[in-house]
Design a protein around this nucleic acid. Structure first.
Lengths: 244, 244
DNA sequence: TACCTGATATGACAAATATCATATATTAAT
DNA sequence: ATTAATATATGATATTTGTCATATCAGGTA
């Protein structure tokens, strides 16, 4: 008898982990376009979506792959990268809890131009394209919200481009540290709550791993940051903002 | 009597130049989202739009300025730039005949994040926001088309970012020359049909003017291009593609 | 524990790029 | 046509960044 109960509990636990709980009750949707769906639309979407647990380092989808739907991030963080001709990956964006991925493939019907890799353990939901495309056509709120978010993404992309073109590696790295601080905050010990490898930092900034390490070392010497293994603590935020 | 006719002819000429000819009869709309409007919508839009002649070097709108509508380019080319903190302008995009500007401000209701400067003499039309916003809500084809184009712009932005982060100035300049060749073709003498200043090239590539000039000189020495004043002729396209 | 592997760290050097100075060519204005 | 203003060109040099080599460290595993 005890086993049966255990079995049920385990099933419920797995189901929850796999994102099979209902969209209507999921709080993360308030951060994305799904929030514009009506209750009926949401129930229908919920019925056809699938959940998935992704471990740190796992690839969610690859550049060039056909995405037959969109992903909604329930928990965790991932990086969206693009392979350059020189063989190095460039991080284009970080996607976090509440974020969606694959909207572009949804509207343009093309393969993904980016690869998504989990930076920590994640829970994501997948909504098949045919289910959501219909809503896009019929629910003006939904399409308008998507338009707004894409417009914002384009602004962000412009900003990134200008930074990449006009700022030094040191400035970009300082900005990245501030970005991580603002977006993910500190943990209980004051270290950045999102821990990235030096290699990830280099790939975000668009530089060689050694260069990123060197500059972090310099920041450390100057007392701007301190480190404990991979972890980084910002000691002097103002100094980071002043980096030239 | 002859003067009256002359007056009429002049009026017609001016009206045409100022873009007061009707959208329904304008061929450039087939290159942009306006093509998805119904005949009635188009007639209404046509009635409220205003035309404008812009001279080379003129500013169409500035970063931070409120755009109370969208622009449709009837003729000519302009650059969309963003001012970096270091005081240099970075070209984010070139917009050409048939292109539209200000869609982002349309959907997000924010000020422009870019400045538009004419690279040659232009004719542009301006459609007030309130007129077109309504169509965006009601015509699914229109909003879907806009979504598709924004998705494509985002892809392009990703590509630009990776190039900026991972390629050398020489590679980016070579790519820019190829881009201009493909997008604007050559003139009768074989020179690039779009003539840009060395400063513009530098601002597209994201480098110092001197560096752009130096690399163009090097290309010239190597026989990859030839020049006549500002004008550039690509002599060896394959070599440009091979630049490392 | 000892070992192995991958990440972090640093030095030495080479290559790429920016900056400053100055010269020359081109264009615009008078 | 002459001059002034601007754009193009090039040298000299400093700074930034990448590459390769090597050392050290941390976490996982037998």
């Amino acid at each position: 008898m005890i086993f049966v109960i255990s079995g049920i509990v385990y099933f419920w636990y797995t189901a929850t982990k796999l994102g099979m709980s209902k969209c209507e009750h999921c709080i993360v949707r308030q951060f994305n376009s799904l929030n514009t769906l009506t209750r009926e639309e949401l129930v229908r979407v919920s019925a056809c979506k699938t959940g998935r647990v992704v471990k740190k380092g796992d690839i969610i989808f690859r550049e060039g792959e056909a995405l037959n739907g969109i992903y909604c991030i329930r928990e965790g963080v991932c990086k969206l990268t693009k392979l350059s001709e020189n063989g190095k990956d460039q991080v284009v964006k970080l996607s976090v809890k509440g974020g969606m991925m694959g909207q572009r493939s949804l509207v343009s019907n093309e393969c993904s131009n980016l690869t998504a890799v989990a930076l920590n353990d994640m829970q994501i939901c997948f909504i098949p394209k045919q289910e959501i495309l219909d809503d896009l056509q019929k629910n003006v709120n939904f399409s308008m919200d998507l338009l707004k978010r894409m417009a914002q993404d384009l602004r962000d992309a412009d900003d990134s481009l200008v930074d990449m073109a006009q700022k030094t590696v040191k400035q970009r790295l300082a900005e990245t540290l501030l970005y991580v601080k603002n977006k993910f905050d500190n943990d209980a010990d004051g270290y950045l709550a999102l821990t990235l490898s030096r290699d990830d930092y280099a790939s975000i900034v668009g530089t060689a791993t050694e260069s990123a390490i060197r500059i972090l070392s310099q920041f450390k010497k100057e007392g701007i940051i301190s480190t404990k293994g991979k972890q980084i603590k910002i000691e002097d935020e103002q100094a980071l903002k002043r980096v030239e």
